[in-house]
Write a protein that binds this DNA or RNA. Sequence first.
DNA 1: TTTATATCGGATAAATATGTCCGACTTTAA
DNA 2: TTAAAGTCGGACATATTTATCCGATATAAA
Lengths: 144, 144
Amino acid sequence: MFSRACEYGIRACIHLAQISKEGGRSSLKAIAAAIDSPVAFTAKILQTLAREEIIVSVKGPNGGYEVEASRLDVITLDDIVDAIDGNSIYRGCGLGLKHCNAKKPCPLHFQFKKIRDELKEMLQSTSLNDVATGLHEGLAFLKR
Amino acid sequence: MFSRACEYGIRACIHLAQISKEGGRSSLKAIAAAIDSPVAFTAKILQTLAREEIIVSVKGPNGGYEVEASRLDVITLDDIVDAIDGNSIYRGCGLGLKHCNAKKPCPLHFQFKKIRDELKEMLQSTSLNDVATGLHEGLAFLKR
DNA sequence: TTTATATCGGATAAATATGTCCGACTTTAA
DNA sequence: TTAAAGTCGGACATATTTATCCGATATAAA
């Protein structure tokens, strides 16, 4: 569904949301440990997310990454997916056709559209705050 | 959503369904031309589908591939996806966690589950006959 | 029985995704 | 001012997916 990079990205953001909510900050190493991902590869992804202004990077000692608390309700999973995987999940044809649309549809166009629209709706309506809450309450897990 | 191989596989099967419905047969070259896919790569995929007994390969002159007409209603898109991509779409965690389940869920487990169940339902309830019909009526397209 | 036509399957190549390494740069704190 | 902690970004390495090539094999028809 998503690329591995995107999976790590989402997990990292959820972790950061939880930390940031309490006014904290998490270093690259701490993030990789929290979400059980390769450190260097995670660094690349965090750089992308910082460039896209989804997270904030703080250099120097006691630095790391954080999410602005005021934006926890604004940033959605869709923002993260879009930053890393682009809009291919929504845009692309389910059967890989270049020019598939309602007027010239592939045989599964409308069936796929329904499912995709739901995925889109879910990603767009789920904020970092939403998922961080379940995590904090011990109802959900980010690794293993 | 699916691997490219799987996309080609589905398109090939839909094309074959249409041809087989009229008692015909289609050669590797004809299939690749019909669905606009690389010939040699398509050959591999067709071999897999034949090994999984979703399609039938006929060697020699006037040979090619076909789907048994009696099975057009039985074979579903899910069978094709399973033969090529396996069950990773349903099984795997949306966030890439190894051991994500209802008892120890990732923060998005239940949201993903809903969408996946729908995808599963769609793939399992759509037969080759279903999609071939729309194609034949000129309502849908397999290339470009 | 021969020939032409197809698929089969193993080896190989190219492209992309995933993952690593390291020197440069930035910033905080001593 | 300097040292330590941390990110940045480019080059490189590996794995997987996608794609190609070609000889072997099977089969129908002449």
